[in-house]
Simulated scan of single mutants.
Amino acid sequence: MAQTDIATDETNRLIASNKVEGTTVYNAQREKLGSIYNFMVEKRSGKVEYAVLQFGGLFGLGSDYYPLPWDVLTYDTDQGGYVVNLDKSVLEQAPRYAGDSEPAFDRNYGREVYGHYGVDYPY
Rank of each mutant, 00 (worst) to 15 (best):
M1K: 05
A2N: 04
Q3A: 14
A7G: 08
T8G: 07
E10F: 01
E10K: 08
E10I: 03
N12G: 15
L14C: 10
I15T: 02
N18K: 09
V20S: 03
E21M: 10
E21D: 08
E21Q: 09
E21C: 08
G22L: 08
G22T: 09
G22N: 07
G22V: 04
T24I: 11
T24F: 04
Y26W: 11
Y26F: 15
N27I: 06
A28F: 14
A28I: 14
Q29M: 03
R30S: 09
E31V: 01
L33S: 11
L33C: 09
G34I: 00
Y37I: 01
N38V: 15
F39G: 01
M40N: 15
M40I: 15
M40W: 15
S45M: 08
S45E: 09
G46P: 13
G46Y: 15
G46E: 13
V48W: 00
V48P: 00
E49W: 13
L53Q: 04
Q54Y: 00
G56Y: 00
G56E: 00
G56K: 00
G57Y: 00
L58Q: 08
G60L: 00
L61C: 02
D64R: 05
Y65A: 09
Y65W: 10
Y65F: 12
Y66I: 07
P67W: 10
P67M: 13
L68D: 02
D71G: 13
V72L: 03
T74D: 10
T74Q: 10
Y75E: 08
T77H: 10
D78M: 07
D78P: 05
D78Y: 08
Q79H: 06
Q79T: 11
Y82Q: 06
V83C: 04
V83T: 03
N85C: 05
N85F: 05
L86V: 08
L86E: 07
D87G: 14
K88Y: 05
S89L: 06
S89Y: 05
E92Y: 07
E92G: 12
A94R: 14
P95K: 07
P95T: 05
R96Q: 12
Y97D: 03
A98I: 11
A98T: 14
S101D: 14
E102W: 13
A104G: 05
F105Y: 08
F105D: 01
R107I: 06
N108E: 12
N108F: 02
N108H: 08
Y109N: 15
Y109I: 15
R111N: 11
E112V: 03
E112L: 03
V113W: 02
G115N: 14
H116E: 03
Y117T: 09
V119L: 09
Y121E: 04
Y121G: 01
Y123L: 11
Y123D: 12
